[in-house]
């Protein structure tokens, strides 16, 4: 069945076919290309091209000044056999779990609770969440706040007559100390609040008339409405958590011992300290597949909400 007759004509203005009338759609395409091309080129050179190159380099012994040599799966073998690889992946998973627990779940709860507050408080909180986006500078400052002898945090503990903590120096506390700034510095709270504000008030009023309590309203109205946003934020958070680099790089360098050695740090060390770019790239590709697998699993779990 041909139903194209039901569609509006592609060229507007009623000029008829040919001549100036046919030049307009062509111009439209040209304009579209002009606007899209810079972005596409940027994406090509800084996104897809490096990925393609990485898949080549991972199979090579890559020298900086000599032609690379093909060595098959040797880099992957070396990366897997490296005793620091499981340490780095375990630490990264631990960081991701802590990070998702504290900077992903907590903001959802806080956002829902905040919606019960007066609008003025909500606005202030949104501003506070959004202000300290200069995360790298923030991380540098946190390094000093954590100083076990002279840092502000232990000063506060002293004032409260609580035992001092070694923070970044304690292998048991170091990873948690890396995650904590994320709770305050930047979190998805802003997105949740914006989404929550988009839920029609009438739904809650109707639920209250039906006799629903606070928790019931959250379960029946808020969470289902937030699901697509939660699903999307979860994907972003998982990707960011597994790629973590700045926090351990600036604050601990992967220590004490290997307590905060993440995959990102290990890749950097292999590439730019040992100049073993092949092995570093192989490790990066393993991380790439791990993240991709996690995202696919998440997409399957949240398929309904994403397709809504």
């Amino acid at each position: 069945m041909n139903d194209t007759t039901a569609l509006p004509p592609r060229s507007s203005g009623g000029r008829g076919s040919g001549g100036a009338g046919s030049a307009r759609p062509r111009y439209k395409h040209l304009a579209a290309w002009c606007f899209t091309l810079p972005g596409l080129l940027f994406q090509f050179f800084f996104g897809w091209f490096p990925i393609a190159v990485a898949f080549i380099v991972a199979f090579q012994r890559y020298y900086l000044v000599h032609p690379p040599q093909w060595i098959g799966l040797r880099n992957f073998h070396d990366a897997v056999a490296d005793p620091l690889t499981p340490v780095a992946f375990t630490n990264t998973a631990y960081y991701a779990a802590l990070s998702l627990g504290l900077t992903f779940l907590v903001p959802i709860i806080i956002s829902i609770l905040l919606m019960e507050m007066p609008p003025r408080i909500i606005r202030v909180m949104m501003v506070l969440w959004f202000l300290p986006v200069a995360s790298t500078a923030g991380i540098v400052i946190w390094k000093y706040l954590y100083n076990p002898k002279l840092g502000l945090l232990n000063g506060l503990l002293d004032m409260m007559h609580l035992p001092r903590q070694a923070w970044l120096d304690d292998p048991g506390l170091a990873m948690l100390s890396l995650v904590l700034p994320g709770v305050i510095l930047f979190s998805p709270g802003l997105v949740y609040i914006a989404s929550l504000q988009g839920i029609p008030e009438e739904l809650y009023e109707a639920a209250e008339l039906e006799g629903a309590g606070f928790l019931q309203k959250i379960r029946q109205i808020t969470l289902p409405r937030l699901r697509p946003v939660i699903a999307m934020m979860l994907i972003f958070s998982v990707i960011a958590a597994f790629q973590v680099f700045e926090q351990p790089f600036i604050m601990t360098g992967g220590g004490p011992g290997y307590a905060t050695l993440t995959v990102g740090i290990r890749i950097y060390d292999l590439a730019f300290k040992a100049y073993n770019l092949g092995k570093a790239t192989a490790l990066a590709i393993l991380l790439f597949f791990l993240i991709m697998a996690l995202v696919v699993i998440q997409r399957r779990c949240f398929r309904e909400s994403l397709d809504e």
Partner: peptide, 12 residues
């Protein structure tokens, strides 16, 4: 070596 000593020195 730094990792070795940092764990030896800093771990409770």
């Amino acid at each position: 070596i730094r990792a070795l000593y940092s764990e030896a020195v800093l771990s409770p």
